[in-house]
């Protein structure tokens, strides 16, 4: 019988694969079991989901802009 318990490292890897449906039946079972018994990985899973939901907000908050010189340089190139 294959071992039911997997390491935290494996579990984090499986979480990645699960998102894309690349996780087999048995692996899925191993991951569910691991999450049941491991509080740290439950925290990781929650934070991972939160990160994915929020990463795109970086766009709204990015306030960088080009200097007048940068813009002039682009116009020069277009000429």
């Amino acid at each position: 019988m294959k071992a039911l318990n997997i390491s935290c490292k494996k579990a984090a890897e499986y979480m990645c694969k699960k998102e894309e449906g690349s996780l087999g039946f048995w692996q899925n079972f191993q991951l569910s079991y691991h999450l049941l018994v491991c509080g740290l990985c439950r925290i990781f899973k929650q934070q991972d989901q939160w990160l994915k939901d929020n990463i795109c907000k970086v766009d709204e908050h990015c306030k960088g802009c080009l200097s007048e010189e940068d813009k002039k340089a682009i116009l020069e190139k277009l000429r």
Partner: peptide
């Protein structure tokens, strides 16, 4: 980030963030 056996390394193991995960920051 992981010890040899694949367990979270003590120093950097996930800690509670104390935020509401349903809300953005």
């Amino acid at each position: 980030y992981f010890e040899e056996g694949g367990h979270w390394a003590k120093e950097t193991q996930p800690k509670e963030w104390g935020v509401d995960y349903n809300n953005p920051i």
